[in-house]
Simulated assay, not measured.
Amino acid sequence: MNVDALLETIPPLAVYVIVGAVIGLESLGIPLPGEIALVSAALLASRHTLDINPVAVGAAAAIGAIVGDTIGYSIGRRFGMSLFERLGRRFPKHFGPGHVALAKQLFTRWGVWAVFFGRFIALLRIFAGPLAGALKMPYARFLAANATGALCWAGGTTAVVYFLGLAAERWLSRFSWIALIVAVLVGIGATLLLRERTGRLIADLEDEHDWDTLRRD
């Protein structure tokens, strides 16, 4: 069985459910690859041999993001900042003091805009709901920023990837894989650069946190 035949056996409904579930759990505060799930589904939708609707993909992603962030907000409001202290002890790579400090700093400075733009940033995508709740952001303001951010992120990402997939399919029928490989490498390089800069900010904030702890002791 070749790849195309294997892909054709995947029910479209399963794709929508997986996209919504993965993004919903990520928005809840669980570090899952929501963006990868969305991009993969949008690429599948761009294949003319598959019956996957790109609008349904975007809708599933938006619904998952809104529902997951709302549940995360409720949990954060219920348990407060102590929730992140417990998570930091158990999952230091994702909820360490530097991660929390950076997210909190962005929230303090930008307010609801941090919720909106947080949908486009991996770190804030995990923290947005729980942290907004822990910081007692009014729910109406949170919901407005959360919903508009989710719609823009899900709809925009799906549309861009879908049309790029259509263009790539036409290109690859006439040209080699070289252009696609170069584009992928550029995308990976940009992602790694952003991750490295974020990691540096987190490390600096963790150093500040450790120094403050030593001074208090």
Rank of each mutant, 00 (worst) to 15 (best):
N2G: 12
A5I: 14
E8A: 15
E8M: 13
T9W: 13
T9C: 12
P12V: 00
G20V: 07
V22Y: 15
V22L: 12
G24V: 12
L25S: 09
L28Y: 07
P33G: 06
E35S: 09
L38G: 03
S40Q: 13
S40A: 15
L43M: 12
A45T: 02
H48P: 09
V55A: 13
A60F: 04
A61N: 06
I66T: 00
V67M: 10
T70F: 04
I71G: 06
R77V: 04
F79Q: 06
F79W: 13
S82M: 07
E85F: 04
R89C: 01
R89D: 00
R90T: 00
F107Y: 10
R109H: 08
W110T: 09
W110R: 10
G111H: 04
G111R: 08
W113N: 06
R119F: 07
P130K: 02
P130M: 03
A132W: 00
A134Q: 03
F142Y: 07
G156V: 01
G156K: 00
T158V: 03
A159W: 15
L166H: 12
R170W: 11
W171D: 06
W177L: 13
A179R: 11
I188T: 12
A190S: 09
T198V: 08
A203F: 09
D204E: 15
D207L: 14
D210M: 12
T213Q: 03
R215G: 10
R216G: 06
D217L: 13
